[in-house]
Design a protein around this nucleic acid. Structure first.
Lengths: 252, 252
DNA sequence: CGATTACTTGACACCGGTCAAAGCCGGTGG
DNA sequence: CCACCGGCTTTGACCGGTGTCAAGTAATCG
């Protein structure tokens, strides 16, 4: 099995097969692009786990403006449903075709497997840390660094599920999605994208971002990945191994 | 005892004295304004509870810009420390003189009092809901509605600890604090503040905000308080009682 | 291939930032 | 009691980053 959640947890806190024995999954189901997965105001009693594809958490505000408050990658929970039967204050929509499976989180927690329970707590903490980083990003950084920072974060999270390395990763988003997440207009996202291309920080070929010099990109974005490794010990694994790759010279 | 946490929990989920019997508090201590309460990168193993005063969660970014990612009111936990011994990805600073007490959250959780444990979970959920609302606010609203929305939220949260009603509440913040939370410059906060004064939405007299017509203010801000009452049943209490106050006519 | 969706580009307006100076306190000390 | 002082607020002038509108080009998909 190549379950992205398991990959992530093994990287993140060294969870092994024995710790995962308590995990029970239901039947995965497919959602088509642009379809709503969870609706604002809905009451849910289960947790959705994204297996493949990309989704987002969002809120509609004012006239029809959409604020994207989170991106979901494979291995992410769509709703770390805290109390059981919570009423959602946000919607979740598929940005690409998505594979989703419902998970009985409460049961996972109560199996006595404290390591698994701790891992879930860790994921929830990561969710909050990401939200905090986004807040700082939105409120204090100019558009170019803002976009760069988001790209760094996504690359890093993709790396955790082995969908990225220091050189490239595929982002199946459209510029409108980036705009709604960054609080910018589509037009400006486009321009800023070109701008950081001209700076030689990235290159794009059909949705795949090519990174020449990761260190330079992260420095420009003021990106510090420590918020993505909350607390745990064996944190260096994925990051350092990818970081260890030669400063690169993808031919830009 | 007039512990703001108890007030909040009784409003929020009808917790009674019996549920609170398991709560053990240590010795409160005082922190002077501008002093750092928790430092970025610090490893903490306890939870700080704010008893009085006002504090903020923040991140420093780029050159010396400060991004405030949360305001703490009496009755709020400064760090809903998820895993024990987590490394903080943010700092916490006192904005006014603050009274703080450390609480052993892990012990509270394990006393078998599931209602108390649920309440703590609810508070954590509220923290996240607020962060999401801020994200939407920052990314999609113009300065005037942005500021108004924040004011509505703070008034509402103050009301939960009985420090506000539909007519007025005291906010001991300086404009710089608002600016750092809203992603605006101090100068612009000042102007926007005047602007919504001229609109007749608020009045200010020495740090106290007077609200003429709460409904109008909340409508202007597109403020929907439902995200602050996550999931629980007895949610209407504080809100509706305050809302019930006559449409007002504080003499503007 | 045609039609729809996504991406680019340019012109222009405006929101909000920056800089700098001037009032307005509240506190402190003479 | 007054003079001073430092932090906060208020103003004005000016500029730059982003938004908006609109048109055109390139992809993508039946």
């Amino acid at each position: 099995m190549h379950n992205p959640l398991l990959i992530k947890l093994s990287h993140l806190c060294g969870l092994g097969p024995s710790d995962c024995s308590a995990m029970r999954f239901g039947e995965p189901h497919l959602v088509v692009p642009h379809h709503e997965i969870l609706s604002d105001g809905q009451i849910v009693s289960h947790a959705g786990l994204l297996l493949s594809g990309m989704a987002c958490r969002y809120k509609m505000v004012g006239d029809g403006r959409r604020a994207i408050t989170a991106f979901f990658l494979p291995g992410d929970f769509l709703n770390q449903q805290m109390p059981e039967r919570q009423r959602l204050d946000f919607g979740v929509a598929a940005l690409t075709s998505c594979e989703i499976v419902d998970v009985p989180l409460a049961i996972w927690r109560d199996t006595g497997h404290s390591r698994l329970s701790d891992a879930l707590t860790l994921l929830a903490g990561m969710d909050m840390a990401i939200a905090r980083a986004w807040l700082a990003n939105l409120s204090q950084r100019p558009a170019d660094k803002r976009l760069a920072h988001l790209l760094c974060e996504l690359r890093h999270r993709m790396a955790m599920v082995e969908m990225a390395d220091g050189h490239s990763f595929r982002l199946p988003l459209i510029q409108q999605d980036l705009a709604d997440a960054l609080g910018l207009s589509t037009v400006h996202v486009n321009r800023v994208l070109q701008h950081i291309k001209e700076m030689g920080l990235i290159r794009i070929r059909d949705r795949t971002f090519l990174i020449g010099d990761l260190e330079r990109l992260e420095q420009f974005a003021e990106f510090d990945p420590s918020y993505l490794h909350l607390g745990s010990a064996s944190t260096g694994t994925s990051a350092s191994s990818f970081r260890a790759s030669p400063p690169s010279s993808i031919h830009l």
